[in-house]
């Protein structure tokens, strides 16, 4: 019984990290319609922001998370203004442009911060395990889980309960009509892109104490994030949550039964088969694209 609970928790923890990383991508992909291949590098920048703030200013992890959100969010805004906005409606071009941006960011970090692995402190209060329902679970993983839930709630409220969210949904459904009603679509796109990038920054900040910090860390994350978004269905927040949950539990469970290499292969195979028969993902919304 405790085995099963342990396994469910570990799957849940994998899922929470997946969700954390793909949430920003889902928002950008779903609303702005841009396939942002630099998303992994935004995650990486979030991790480096924590390292930099910790190393140079002695800040703890919690203020760093907030600062990483604003720092990477601002960068996202600038990127949207300078590059992305010129490429709307040209999906292939945005793939190339964001991929190139990712390469530039990665090398910029390698040149400025160095290529070596960087040390980020895990908050001492969270670095041990806590006894919870009969098993030992990592306090830090619980913390990540909780914070992911909070971010999800915030995002939900932002999209479905605020004026900004209403305009955003309007723009997604039909940009021309939204513009006729006086919605500044260009501003909405920029802010949404910035918010998605900021979420990636938080994701990077949160995984940095649990994993490792290196210039090429983003490469793996962007693959995971795309997998989650594609399976969940573009533009569906619920889909992203469900798909992160399914993929997390599945890869955790399969890795437990066999090993991580096999688990990864089976999950990818499953995704390929799914996309073949259901290209719109599990939870596709019916919307008109402008």
């Amino acid at each position: 019984m405790t085995d099963i609970f342990n396994q469910v928790f570990s799957g849940l923890s994998i899922a929470s990290i997946l969700l954390l990383i793909s949430l920003g991508l889902a928002i950008i992909y779903g609303t702005v319609g841009v396939i942002n291949l630099a998303h992994g590098e935004f995650v990486m920048l979030g991790a480096y922001a924590v390292w930099f703030l910790e190393d140079h200013f002695g800040l703890g992890l919690f203020p760093c998370i907030v600062l990483a959100f604003f720092a990477v969010g601002t960068l996202g805004w600038v990127v949207e203004r300078l590059i992305i906005r010129r490429l709307y409606g040209r999906v292939l071009d945005t793939i190339l442009a964001t991929w190139g941006l990712g390469v530039i960011l990665q090398q910029a970090i390698r040149l400025s911060a160095g290529a070596e692995l960087r040390y980020v402190q895990m908050p001492p209060g969270l670095s041990a395990a806590v006894h919870f329902a009969g098993v030992d679970v990592s306090a830090y993983r619980l913390f990540v889980l909780a914070l992911t839930a909070i971010l999800l709630a915030v995002t939900y409220v932002l999209i479905f309960r605020t004026r900004f969210g209403m305009r955003l949904r309007g723009v997604v459904q039909n940009p021309e009509i939204a513009r006729c009603f006086g919605v500044n679509t260009s501003q909405i796109y920029a802010l949404t892109f910035a918010y998605g990038a900021g979420l990636a920054g938080i994701a990077g900040a949160l995984v940095s104490p649990l994993k490792s910090v290196s210039p090429d860390m983003g490469t793996g994350y962007v693959v995971d994030a795309f997998m989650v978004v594609v399976v969940g269905g573009v533009q569906s927040l619920l889909g992203t949550v469900a798909s992160a949950g399914i993929i997390g539990e599945l890869s955790g469970g399969l890795a437990y039964l066999s090993n991580d290499t096999i688990a990864k292969a089976i999950v990818f195979l499953g995704v390929v088969v799914l996309i073949r028969f259901r290209p719109q993902g599990l939870f596709a919304l019916r919307v008109r694209r402008g």
Binding site: N6, S10, I17, K211, G252, A255, Y256, D260, T261, K264
Partner: peptide, 20 residues
């Protein structure tokens, strides 16, 4: 006996097996 992909960073399942 287990081998993880190069660059692997998610060890929760592996650690689960250590515990068991």
């Amino acid at each position: 006996e287990e081998y993880v992909p190069l660059g692997h960073s998610e060890f929760s399942s592996v650690i689960e097996k250590f515990k068991n």
